[in-house]
Design a protein around this nucleic acid. Structure first.
Length: 594
RNA sequence: GCGCCCGUAGCUCAGCUGGAUAGAGCACGCGCCUUCUAAGCGUGGGGCCGCAGGUUCAAGUCCUGCCGGGCGCGCCA
């Protein structure tokens, strides 16, 4: 697949020119050569630091080398002019004909425009959401879901072979507690006379998950199992049977129900993952023991006692021997426990099993999206993956910060106990899936964000969701009025009539789409797509507004059919790139504003 | 106490893995908008990039130390 990135193309030209000027330099001397848009547009369309970065190796003064490089580059067919500048930059101004010639490229590639080769088909597993299946999804899960999904789409666009994965934490104490909570609703469905507090007394660790969402699960248990999981007693009519008799059954049943609900919630958000990996199943299959044996074979496991955390010793701290993983050999601060002092596995051990499973499935890279409260686990997990894969497989962790929901200018307090937390479904119902997804991507993921329920549905330029959608709707409106000409016919339009500064500014933005995709993918930062689309929308709105003042700049002019076709090509290309960006974000482009 | 993340215009945030004179929106000032594309448009002011050192031809970006905020810190997940 040919790269659409004209910056990459020109970089090749620059490196060729430098190599011709400096034949004695080895190819790796050019590794740091960049061709980028300059911050200041008055410097031209592209700038390269080529003379600067090879100056030392070539033993030449960068300004002098820049002058020689500029002379060579000025002779290129794509280049209008090239001039040395500053401490050794070369500024390039591209021929407008070359810029305009990108429009047919965009129209021809359609939404594949910007697809990159960066990933080179490498298999990457993106794990995200992975909420405990103990209740419905709430806004706290939402950001991770959107960021993970968009990141996976972004990596796919950049040429990776992507798997979207959900890891079901269905093996721990919390799921046990869920089983007891669902069983309570089951007893209620059977008509027990026991009170909730009486029941809670019987539950190890107390009754958690008292939310009403388990009532239908209790009903379903009754329908499925009748009263066979309970006992009869004189006082309550229906009572609790021994957990051995029912707990595993109820737990599995309930987890299945919760996962069903979670999948529905995710689907409502437009998130559909490829694989769901069950922690409990990995444990059953002995993956933990396999991982432990593998690490033991590499001499990375030992029995030992950890130091108490420096400065802050927990009150009940006492030295105990545990099974430890030598995380310090892979850059972590301390070695980490695989087994508790009673010999049972830690959560970390199960996670190692999960990662072994990923590595065995043959992924080249692993990516996780975690809440920021898990930041302390990044290093140990990277250490474990490095150990398991002999440092072959990199693990990147993207952390997402908390989202504060605001309504009517007031923060919406979230409390599970008080039952005031907002479910994901509530949020989608209130503002719509597209607004949720777009807004979640308008901040760097590791920065806290405010989600203002009123602002995200506001129809004004302050609202980036609206602003970008409006640009697309305007494009579509124009194309509809022109009776949707085929892209092929537009690609042959006489593009040389596109000479206005606003038209060229828009083209200059469009051609940056491929490199934006690549940079965002490498940085694992899907929010950059949202910012790019905002800038693109802005360029388009500017052009639209120019047409208000100067009617000769309108897209459709009956008296100039050829110029109209050229402008429609520009509009169609703009719509294509907006759609392409929205597709990465998982946002549906709208045809018209209502 | 230790580790990680963050600190950029009055506010909310970008800043393209080290490039030239640090950007956008909001807010503020001024001008425009009876009509052809106005759920507005144009234009202007506004900054010791938390502080102090260091590396570099070049630092908001990398390193060190402080200050301030968030998160985490054996047998929770």
């Amino acid at each position: 697949m040919p790269s659409h990135d004209i910056f990459a193309a020109l970089r090749t030209r620059v490196v060729d020119a430098l190599a011709a000027l400096l034949p004695e330099l080895p190819p790796e001397a050019f590794a740091r050569v960049l061709v980028e848009p300059p911050r200041d547009p008055s410097h031209g369309d592209m700038a390269t630091n080529g003379a600067l970065v090879v100056g030392k190796a070539a033993k030449q003064a960068p300004p002098k080398l820049a002058a020689a490089l500029a002379e060579k580059l000025a002779a290129l067919p794509e280049v209008e002019s090239a001039s040395p500048a500053g401490p050794g930059f070369v500024n390039l101004r591209l021929r407008e004909s070359f810029l305009r010639a990108q429009l047919p490229v965009i129209l021809d590639a359609a939404e594949r425009y910007g697809d990159g080769a960066t990933g080179a088909g490498r298999r990457v597993d993106v794990e995200y959401v992975s909420a405990n299946p103990t209740g419905p999804m709430h806004v706290g899960h939402c950001r991770g879901a959107v960021v993970g999904d968009a990141l996976a789409n972004l990596l796919a666009k950049a040429g990776y072979d992507v798997t979207k994965e959900y890891y079901i934490n269905d093996a721990g104490a919390q799921v046990q507690a869920l089983g007891y909570a669902a069983y309570w609703r089951y007893l209620q469905a059977l008509g027990t006379r026991m009170t909730e507090e009486e029941y809670a007394q019987l539950v190890p660790g107390g009754l958690q998950y008292r939310g009403e969402y388990l009532i239908p699960v209790g009903e379903a248990l009754r329908e499925r199992f009748g009263d066979s999981l309970a006992t009869r007693d004189e006082i309550h009519g229906i009572g609790m049977a021994g957990p051995d008799h029912w707990l595993a059954t109820v737990r599995e049943f309930t987890v299945a129900r919760m996962m069903e609900a979670i999948r529905e919630d995710l689907a409502a958000l437009g998130v559909v993952q490829d694989v769901f990996i069950s922690e409990a199943q990995l444990v059953r299959e002995g993956k933990l023991e396999q991982a432990e044996a593998l690490l033991a074979a590499k001499d990375l496991i030992y029995r030992g006692v950890l130091e108490p955390p420096k400065g802050k010793t927990p009150e009940d701290w006492e030295p105990r021997e545990q099974t430890l993983f030598r995380a310090t050999q892979f850059g972590d601060e301390v070695d980490r426990p695989l087994r508790k002092s009673d010999g049972s596995g830690t959560y970390f051990a199960n996670d190692i099993a999960n990662h072994l499973h990923k590595i065995e499935r043959g992924f080249d890279e692993l990516v996780h999206v975690w809440g920021a409260d898990h930041g302390g686990y990044v290093k140990r997990m990277q250490a474990a993956v490095a150990a398991l894969s002999d440092k072959r497989v990199p693990l990147d962790v993207v952390l997402t910060q908390i989202v504060h929901v605001v309504k009517d200018g007031q923060p919406v307090r979230m409390s599970k106990r008080a039952g005031t937390y907002i479910t994901l479904r509530d949020l989608i119902d209130e503002v719509g899936r597209d607004a949720v997804r777009f807004t979640m991507l308008t901040r760097k993921s590791d920065a806290q964000m405010e989600f203002d329920l009123d602002k995200v549905v506001e129809q004004s330029r302050d609202n980036p969701v609206f602003y970008v959608q409006y640009a697309h709707a305007r494009c579509r409106s124009v194309l509809r009025q022109a009776e949707d000409p085929a892209p092929g016919s537009l690609a042959e339009a006489p593009l040389e009539v596109l000479t206005d500064a606003a038209e060229l500014a828009l083209i200059r933005r469009l051609v940056q789409w491929p490199r934006t995709v690549e940079a965002a993918a490498l940085a694992r930062e899907p929010h950059r797509i949202a910012f790019f689309l905002h800038d693109l929308a802005s360029d388009f709105h500017v052009l639209w507004n120019r047409g208000r003042e100067d009617t000769t700049l309108r897209f459709i002019r009956a008296e100039e059919p050829e110029a109209t076709r050229a402008r429609l090509a520009l509009v169609a290309a703009t719509a294509t790139v907006i759609r392409s960006g929205l597709a990465v974000m998982g946002v549906t482009p709208v045809e018209e504003m209502r």
